[in-house]
Amino acid sequence: MLEIINLSYRAQDDNQDKEILDNINLKFEDNYTYVITGPNGSGKSTLAKLVMGILPASSGKILFNGMNITSLPINERAKLGISYAFQTPVTFKGLKIRDLIDVACGQKKSFDQICEILSKVGLCAKDYINRPLDDKLSGGELKRIEIALALCQEAKLNIFDEPEAGIDLWSFDNLIDIFNSLKNSTNIIVSHQKRILHISDYIILLKNGQIEKFGKKEEVVPLLEKRQCARLVRSK
């Protein structure tokens, strides 16, 4: 459903070209869940943003259901069925949560429908729909709303960038339930979280802008655990 071919992203850093993603090749199949993991700064968010069109590819191709979307604007990709939940949720001045839900759903929703959507992320619609989506909301609240907006889009491909960040333990279970319920879509989740790794089908391990390992969860998790173990031993 999604194919990434020879994809690279270079940025200018101190007037020097910096290779942030280097010749990435990946193939995503329908209705599987993929986790992208790897150290901070390895290029996970950059890869996710390239798929959504938030950053432009320096070279290479992105195919979505066979269609070349490499130079398509963000909203066109959204219309084709790609959603994106930001690592750092965006806030506004004067827009209410309800306004964004209506946009994400592509139509005006009834109170009951909004209630259902927000309850998936553990929020009570009554307390939230008329609140502005601004920085008076806590980080956890913003993150939950960010995820709810992605769910509203009912996309064929969902991208979540570190969805667990800032979410407390109770809603973490909630989050796992949400991912488990997304069976009719392909999901790409950027995450470090062990429990999220465990609900995936495939894991992509990035390092310095390159794919270090791409394989089934059963293959990659033991490798990650072994490393974790080695790190612990070394630090002792």
Binding site: P73, N75, A78, F86, V90, F92, K93, D99
Partner: peptide, 26 residues
Amino acid sequence: ELIKLMSLGLSKEEAENMIIEGFLLG
């Protein structure tokens, strides 16, 4: 803000209008 609204399916112009309207009338 523009990127977020575009990622929800709005064109750049629609996104700008929505942001301005919220800012003034919200």
